[in-house]
């Protein structure tokens, strides 16, 4: 039964079992995927609110906004994060082809590389922060700086959360987990990294245009 038909039926009129005996989840996907999509929506709300606050602070503040001159490192970091997503996507494609997924197999190695590249991205963001602090753009000196550290920091924290799940998936892969489970882990991580890449594009645009 479609979702629309389900929510428009008259339940008092119907007795018995619709559509046979098997249990019907609302969406025909694993529970973990539903939970991830929900979490991504929640994270979207969080980043949207931060962005709205960013623009409102410009509009409603006392005109003390001095734009940050973004260090060039950010372009390099963007490239690294794109590479993360691409490598993870490649790992997912490999995982769908492979019968068994081990850490030493193609999918496993690419998955490992995706996470390591993420660490490079985080190190790159740290370097960008150091450049800014060196240039006198401290947290307290201007709201634009404060927002820069806040937005990039929250983004990095989300990546760190992803890396925690990534670590767990790696451990499971190395201890010879079921291929289906590993494939699901790789898929969920890939989706999440793509999402955070899109968020980064958005944040980078917002930060560099104001």
């Amino acid at each position: 039964m479609s979702l629309y038909r389900q929510v428009t039926e008259k339940p008092w009129d119907q007795v018995g079992l619709p559509d046979g005996i098997e249990a019907r989840p609302t969406f025909q996907v694993p529970d973990q995927k539903v939970a991830l999509v929900l979490f991504v929506i929640v994270a979207c709300v969080l980043f949207s609110l931060l962005t709205v606050s960013y623009y409102l602070r410009i509009a409603w503040g006392a005109g003390d906004w001095v734009p940050v001159s973004e260090p060039a490192t950010l372009w390099v970091n963007t490239g690294v994060l794109v590479a993360c997503s691409a490598v993870l996507q490649w790992s997912l494609i490999q995982a769908r082809r492979q019968e068994a997924i081990r850490l030493t197999s193609m999918a496993g190695l690419l998955f490992l590389a995706g996470g390591l590249l993420t660490l490079v991205f985080i190190a790159g963001q740290y370097a960008a922060w150091q450049t800014l602090i060196g240039g006198g753009y401290t947290l307290q000196s201007n709201p634009a700086n404060a927002f820069f550290y806040l937005l990039t920091g929250v983004h990095v924290l989300h990546l760190a959360g992803g890396l925690w799940v990534w670590t767990k998936a790696l451990f499971r892969m190395s201890s010879g987990a079921d291929a289906g489970d590993s494939r699901l882990s790789i898929e969920l991580c890939t989706w999440y990294w793509h999402f955070l890449l899109l968020v980064w594009f958005g944040l980078f645009y917002v930060l560099s245009t104001t």
């Binding site: 039964m1 979702l3 389900q6 929510v7 039926e9 008259k10 339940p11 079992l17 619709p18 005996i21 098997e22 249990a23 019907r24 989840p25 609302t26 969406f27 529970d31 539903v34 939970a35 929900l38 979490f39 929640v42």
Partner: peptide
């Protein structure tokens, strides 16, 4: 709350028993 909330929503959407349609 977020950990609990993701759980409640996913459970209600995905784990209802046979015959438990949304409108039941």
């Amino acid at each position: 709350f977020t950990m609990g909330g993701l759980n409640y929503v996913t459970t209600i959407l995905q784990a209802r028993t046979r015959g438990m349609t949304l409108m039941r």
